[in-house]
Design a protein around this nucleic acid. Structure first.
Lengths: 221, 221
DNA sequence: CCTACCGATCGGTAGG
DNA sequence: CCTACCGATCGGTAGG
């Protein structure tokens, strides 16, 4: 009889389904936002019926939290690894950070903040904020802190940007990148400076933040 | 008999109601976003019943468009006036721009872009994008263009930031400002450099973008 | 400018 | 893991 199939087999299937739901939910939440994604869309995207979601997750918000928990774990690993590469300069590490976040948090980071503030129940906010701080803010901040300690970046006492604000500035440029490429294609036919190396928006944005836009260029090239 | 009340009187009342709806809708849409705002919330906020909205506006999206039309007209006037102040430096004018947009578009600018992309019917997108370009992008871009012409900012051919990208970079920092002040209060106790003038986030962000974060400070102070 | 109400869809539950 | 279904709420309409 098939019921002597071991519990581990059952659990494996069940776990596989749970992970399929999480994957589908992650993709949808990141692309469309919490409110625009319905539980039925998630179910259909992974080939199950909607009420099944409530067997694996107690409600929609918990599913959302779980998605972010997974994403946060992955981000933390990746970003801490990048931050620890002492052999690479601060701008190079920041470019890697931007590239990683751009493909990971596909859309803008501020959609997430909007949801945190307006769509998510207050009782869940603290947990999500902590996830975000530990997995995103702290690793990036450590790069800026190191840049200041090394004398490469101005310290706040010299009128420099405090590391946490610098981190938020960097993160906010992520939403920018999708904004500008969507609004129109200024970036592709950048007809002056992109003859030696192909254009990389991540590097470009980091260079702008670090070196500014003012004349008398500092830029090493 | 009261029915000889002139049509202009009737129209005035009707116009007044229409404007009350627009004001309520603007405040709610800016704060909560298109999807989170229900037509019943708008109606209640201005003291009418929900079906009345459909006498003044053909549907929710049209109301949303009309709100943005009004906002765009006001922004265009304000921003073009700021851009035209030849007596003020580029950073000073940009600080005024940031201050204006911060109080006008209260929340993040990228919420608007998200809605443009995912919540608004394609047939309405083009009109809204045009509004945004004419009232926000173009005036700000002209400030950056002037800064480049004057030799204050690097031109794109010297590795500088193209004016349109610079504009989007500036706009993206607006969402940042709300992000960072919400996440925690790094900004208030900025314990090094803020003894001479009170801390102004708008000016601070503009200075960062223009002069960068790198050491060997250029900053005039 | 309102009352009354519609079809659709949402998050979530019952019961197996 | 499903079928069947719930109460609530949404955008929008009928009719006056």
């Amino acid at each position: 009889m098939p019921n002597e199939r071991p519990r581990s087999g059952l659990r494996a299937d069940t776990e596989e389904t749970r992970r399929a739901i999480l994957r589908a939910a992650q993709s949808l939440f990141m692309k469309l936002g919490y409110r625009a994604v319905t539980t039925r869309m998630v179910a259909e995207a992974c080939g199950v019926k909607q009420p099944l979601l409530y067997y694996h997750f107690s409600d929609k918000e918990t599913l959302y939290l779980e998605v972010h928990r997974e994403q946060a774990a992955a981000s933390r690993t990746a970003l801490e690894r990048i931050a620890a590469r002492q052999g690479e300069s601060v701008p190079v590490r920041l470019s890697h950070v931007v590239r990683y976040l751009r493909q990971s948090y596909q859309q803008n980071m501020s959609l997430f903040f909007h949801e945190l503030r307006y769509e998510i129940h207050p009782s869940m906010r603290a947990a999500m904020r902590d996830l975000f701080r530990l997995s995103i803010i702290t690793p990036i901040m450590s790069i800026f802190e190191e840049g200041i300690r090394a004398g490469f970046l101005r310290s706040p006492s010299e009128g420099g940007v405090p590391p946490r604000l610098a981190t938020y500035l960097l993160l906010s440029t992520l939403s920018n990148l999708s904004m500008s490429t969507e609004a129109e294609g200024e970036l592709e036919h950048d007809e002056g400076s992109s003859f030696e190396k192909e254009y990389d928006p991540a590097e470009f944005v980091v260079q702008s933040l670090i070196y500014g836009m003012v004349a008398r260029p500092f830029i090493e090239r």
